[in-house]
Amino acid sequence: MLEHIEVILRSITSFSLLLIGARFLGKQTISQMTMFDFVAAISLGAISANLAFNTSIKAHHTVISFAIYIVIIFLIAIISLKNRKGRKFLAGDPTIVIQNGKVLEGNMKKMRYTLDYLNQQLRERDVFNIEEVLFAIVETNGTLTVLKKPQYRNVTRQDLMITVMSEQRLPIELIMDGEIIKENLDQNDLSFSWLELELRKRNLTKHEVVYAVIAANGNMYVDTFRDHIHSPIDKE
């Protein structure tokens, strides 16, 4: 029974350490994982797993090892931030795989990057004809960046010289899950009375609203708990 309790406590500690480590190292480890980040994440995961269930290893030894890894990763990240050569060594360089509609087989071979995977990545970016591509670059985190030739790019309002309403701010969430977000009201000089007035214009009270947001163009979107849809498509 004592062993079960020890495993439970070690598991909670392991998860907490992983969470703290991830917060300390920042979001880049998750969203822009390079080769170095991948190795670091695996190492931290292995140490945390041993802390959770390997009772033959003293818990404080594992915690010390985890802390040392976190410090090493953090210091290397600082070096990468300050030193371009260090960053290049750890993360590598982006690699061009398509230039002016031509596949660069030599570059792909060096990365062991197959044509099947290249085509998949292109299709995910709505490209079904390689001739449309001016440049395709494999970034250091493995994603494919595609620049189409000018004649194949999407037309923008600027191209058509259509007047565009300026947007100076991000959307402002006012109500989330039925709760008024007071901080957002205060930060944008909005009052409860103003919000209640806007809801009354829509014949609503705050208790009926699950989500309310002011879009970048100034329009207010409101969603209620009762959607008044007789046959929901996604009903389970």
Rank of each mutant, 00 (worst) to 15 (best):
E132N: 06
V138D: 03
E198K: 10
M165Y: 12
K206Y: 14
L104G: 01
I181P: 04
F135C: 00
H61K: 11
I78R: 01
D177G: 07
A91Y: 01
N219S: 15
N188P: 04
I76C: 15
Q32I: 00
E198S: 11
P171K: 02
D227P: 05
F135K: 02
I162S: 03
E167P: 02
F192Q: 06
I47N: 04
Y117N: 07
G21F: 05
Y152I: 04
Y113P: 02
E236S: 12
I175P: 03
V164M: 14
V133A: 02
R123T: 01
A41K: 01
E236V: 10
T145K: 04
K201C: 10
M33L: 12
M176E: 01
F38W: 02
N100K: 13
T55M: 09
K102I: 13
D93Y: 08
I12A: 13
L199S: 05
Q28G: 02
V155Q: 13
I5P: 02
M176P: 00
E3P: 08
R112F: 11
E179Y: 15
R84H: 07
T205L: 14
T29R: 10
S48Y: 05
L19Q: 06
A49L: 13
D126A: 05
Y113M: 03
N100G: 11
Q151D: 15
G101Q: 10
A215M: 13
E6V: 12
K149N: 07
T95G: 07
Y211H: 10
T13A: 15
F38T: 03
V138T: 03
L18K: 03
R169Y: 13
I64W: 03
E124P: 00
Q99T: 06
V210P: 02
P232Y: 07
N54V: 11
A40Y: 00
D37M: 01
M161E: 12
S231H: 15
S231A: 11
E139S: 05
H230C: 05
G142L: 01
I12V: 15
S191L: 08
A215C: 10
N119C: 02
L204H: 08
L115E: 01
E183M: 09
L122Q: 00
I96W: 03
I47W: 04
I98K: 01
V127K: 06
Q121W: 00
L9M: 14
Q32P: 00
N188C: 00
D223L: 15
T140M: 05
K235Y: 08
E198M: 13
I233W: 04
D223G: 09
K235P: 00
V222Q: 11
G101S: 05
L44M: 10
S14G: 15
S231L: 12
F66C: 07
A215R: 11
